[in-house]
């Protein structure tokens, strides 16, 4: 469904953020991208929807090659890729409803969106999504009145109302407390299952990744170091990705936490 072919990103400063990355994501698969900070996780996700222009290489969404699209057709393809951000990236001064509806901007004309006259079907869908994440009663609250977890739920709704085929998720839990982090991760994975969405989730919390995803890709210095199921993350593999450290504790604690969750 999504195919990255020798994707390279070199910044103007000369930093090589991505070195010929090849990844293939089938439909419905949730993939976690792990790696130390500066490994190029954020850049990789942004190169897919071209918030960052890749230097070379190709990105295929189904059969459409994204890197060569003109800005008009790129906008059309961006509608099929929902994005969820680390700091929620909600428009703080707009209401929850407006934030969710902003996910439909690619589908409605300028004046309709300017006057907030979205089609009734969009409004209904926004209410259903807000209800699904448990925030329908907050629709007319301003986004900056919400807590972190609630904001991230709104961010998820905004991505889903685009009716995407793929979710690009950039550190969804980095600004949240551990409990909320898990709830958000679970919600994202459930929604992907319900809607058969593929997702790429950037995450620095290895334990959390192992808990929820089917596949893990480890990135270091912009190159893929590991690609496999979460069980494959042995101490050796983690050392390869993150460098030398005592990994046993991390992995054990994962098991403990797993028990807690199943309880």
């Amino acid at each position: 469904m999504l195919k990255l072919d020798k994707l390279v990103k070199t910044y103007k400063t000369g930093d090589q953020a991505l070195k010929e990355v090849d990844i293939d994501v089938p439909q419905g698969q949730v993939l976690a991208l792990i790696g130390p900070s500066g490994a190029g996780k954020s850049t990789l996700i942004r190169c897919i929807n071209r918030l960052v222009e890749p230097t070379s290489g190709k990105v295929y969404l189904d059969d459409i090659e994204l890197t060569s699209l003109s800005s008009g057709s790129l906008r059309r393809e961006r509608r099929r890729m929902g994005m969820i951000f680390q700091e929620y990236a909600l428009i703080e001064r707009l209401t929850v409803m407006e934030n969710v509806l902003s996910g439909r901007l690619g589908y409605v004309g300028f004046w309709r969106s300017f006057l907030r006259k979205f089609p009734q079907s969009d409004i209904d869908e926004a209410y259903r999504l807000l209800d699904r994440v448990g925030l329908a009663h907050m629709a007319d609250k301003r986004a900056d009145e919400l807590s972190g977890g609630q904001r991230q739920r709104v961010g998820i709704c905004r991505a889903l109302i685009q009716n995407p085929a793929l979710l690009l998720v950039d550190e969804p839990t980095a600004s949240l407390d551990p409990k909320t982090s898990r709830q958000i991760m679970r919600l994202i994975c459930e929604l992907c299952r319900e809607r058969e969405l593929a997702a790429i989730i950037n995450i620095h919390d290895v334990a959390l990744a192992q808990m929820f995803v089917q596949r893990v890709v480890g990135l270091r210095f912009g190159a893929v170091q590991f690609d496999g199921p979460p069980e494959g993350l042995t101490p050796d593999v983690l050392t390869m990705i993150y460098g030398e450290e005592d990994w046993e504790a991390t992995i054990e604690s994962v098991d403990d936490e797993d028990d807690l969750v199943t309880l």
């Binding site: 209401t95 409803m97 407006e98 907030r116 979205f118 009734q120 409004i123 209904d124 926004a126 209410y127 259903r128 807000l130 209800d131 448990g134 925030l135 329908a136 009663h137 629709a139 007319d140």
Partner: peptide, 19 residues
């Protein structure tokens, strides 16, 4: 959660206006 009290079905099909 107080979502149980809030019935979303009431809202569906109704136009929405920015407060």
């Amino acid at each position: 959660m107080n979502t149980d009290i809030f019935n979303v079905q009431v809202k569906i099909g109704k136009p929405w206006k920015k407060p």
